[in-house]
């Protein structure tokens, strides 16, 4: 179960999607949220601070979401970090690639706050409210 005090990092190059994800998290009572604009700055935050969950876009300039995921899984201090991919890439091969890289769950845009909550709860073995 993810505690409502959990610290969550939202990584997306579009501020709109960061706000939508933050609003969805807020509706689930998760208010301890930080943001990063790409994979590289996200990885830096993860290596310098403690987080309980990453919510990450795939298609970003510079370090992409899948590259961040691989870096996280390759880092002994981060490799068990829950990692939720939120992306417009709905291709089967993308989903398979993310699973092979160790993603915890995967949401395809567009999504409703309800879908977001269900995916998040599923990651932590909870029933959606």
């Amino acid at each position: 179960m993810l505690d409502t005090n959990a610290k969550i990092l939202v990584v997306d190059d579009f501020s709109t999607m960061r706000r939508i994800v933050k609003n969805a998290l807020k509706s689930l009572n998760y208010n301890n949220v930080e943001e990063a604009e790409d994979g590289a700055s996200g990885l830096e935050k993860l290596r310098t601070d403690h987080f309980d969950l990453v919510v990450c876009d795939w298609n970003m300039p510079g370090m992409t979401g899948i590259e961040l995921l691989r870096a996280v899984r390759a880092d002994p201090s981060l490799k068990h970090l829950p990692f939720l991919m939120v992306t417009a890439e709905a291709k089967r091969e993308n989903i398979v690639e993310a699973i092979q890289a160790g993603v915890s769950n995967y949401i395809v845009k567009p999504f409703t706050p309800q879908t977001f909550g269900e995916k998040l709860h599923a990651m932590f073995g909870e029933k959606a409210a």
């Binding site: 579009f14 298609n59 992306t87 417009a88 890439e89 709905a90 291709k91 395809v108 845009k109 567009p110």
Partner: peptide, 10 residues
């Protein structure tokens, strides 16, 4: 634009 093109591409 990203979302619509992504869904159409899929």
């Amino acid at each position: 634009t990203n979302m619509i093109s992504g869904a159409a591409r899929a």
